[in-house]
């Protein structure tokens, strides 16, 4: 009996360690980012850093203003949400409430497949098809632009939005809908007056999740956005927070102000993502309490 107990305790200990590894990683990354991100902000000045409109990290007189990156990330993500959420939302309503089993199976499989495509593939397809297409359709000299990034991001966040929305729509008790039908409502009225409001915090969580995915994406965006530190405009070449870090990291020399400033950008991005996560938690918690 005693022996058994020791064994149990050992197993619990192992689980505890495995759990601590995850927590440890988060703590380590947070501390590391803060430590390596603060010096450059101190040197450049918080206001100059966050609201400076010019980024020229390797010029003779370097400038480190990341406002173009922040605005690009916000515009790009909002654009992706504006395009992606309606498509994803209606797809989810259709799959959860209207579609028959066979259609739903096929469509859900393809949504899952879409989620599994690596971002570099999205980027490649965007670079070879979307960018030239934008150039031809809108008659601009070059298609690599904020618009291209928005479209790629909108497609990338679709699976997240669809899957989470379906889960929350499926969780709406059938009795609610039956009651609505019994009162003489049509099925469209039932979906939008009963099912969707009942699932709204889940759907909100889906949107926030989409925002998180869009703002953190680097690879695909880097391949279609052009990466010039311009202030954002739809047909201009732009640089996101993520791509600002990844495009210059390889060549910046360790310890230089440029490298430190890249860490500071990462810190800003990290804070953005933390805020998004906090919002997500808020929605999920509210959902649970109900």
């Amino acid at each position: 009996m005693k022996k058994n107990k020791i064994f149990e305790d050992i197993v619990h200990g192992i689980f505890l360690i495995l759990g601590l590894i995850t927590v440890g990683c988060v703590v380590l990354i947070t501390i590391y980012l803060i430590i390596s991100g603060l010096p450059a902000i101190k040197e450049i000045g918080l206001i100059n850093f966050l609201f400076g409109k010019q980024w020229a990290s390797t010029a003779a007189e370097p400038k480190f203003g990341i406002l173009p990156f922040i605005l690009t990330s916000i515009y790009g993500t909002s654009g992706a949400i504006v395009i992606g959420v309606p498509i994803g939302f209606f797809t989810a309503v259709y799959l959860s409430k209207v579609a028959n089993k066979k259609v739903r199976n096929i469509m859900e499989t393809s949504v899952n497949l879409l989620a599994g495509i690596p971002s570099v593939v999205y980027g490649l397809v965007g670079m070879l098809i979307l960018v030239p297409a934008i150039r031809k359709i809108f008659k601009v000299p070059d298609g690599a632009s904020l618009l291209a990034a928005i479209i790629v991001l909108a497609i990338m966040i679709l699976p997240n939005i669809i899957k989470v929305s379906i889960t929350s729509l499926d969780a709406v008790p059938k009795e609610y809908e039956d009651a609505s039908y019994a009162l003489g409502a049509s099925s469209t009225e039932t979906f939008f007056r009963v099912s969707v409001p009942a699932a709204k915090s889940g759907i909100a969580a889906a949107v926030v999740l989409g925002v998180g995915r869009a703002i953190g994406e680097a690879m695909a965006v880097m391949m279609v956005a052009g990466n010039v530190a311009n202030m954002p405009s739809l047909f201009q070449s732009v640089r996101f927070l993520t791509t600002a870090v990844s495009s210059e990291m390889a060549y910046s020399s360790p310890g230089s102000l440029q490298r430190n400033a890249l860490f500071s950008i990462a810190l800003v991005l990290y804070i953005f993502i933390m805020l998004i996560n906090a919002t997500l938690n808020f929605f999920l918690k509210r959902d649970k309490e109900k």
């Binding site: 020229a56 390797t58 010029a59 003779a60 670079m127 070879l128 960018v131 030239p132 150039r135 000299p141 070059d142 298609g143 690599a144 880097m222 391949m223 052009g226 990466n227 010039v228 070449s237 640089r239 990844s246 495009s247 390889a250």
Partner: peptide, 26 residues
């Protein structure tokens, strides 16, 4: 030096070649 006005800043030689190959005005 520091005077170039780029339309795109790409991060690899391969990307530059692909982009130029797909745009007749590049």
């Amino acid at each position: 030096k520091d005077k170039c006005v780029y339309r795109q800043e790409l991060t690899s030689t391969g990307d530059v070649i692909t982009t130029v190959a797909s745009n007749s005005a590049a």
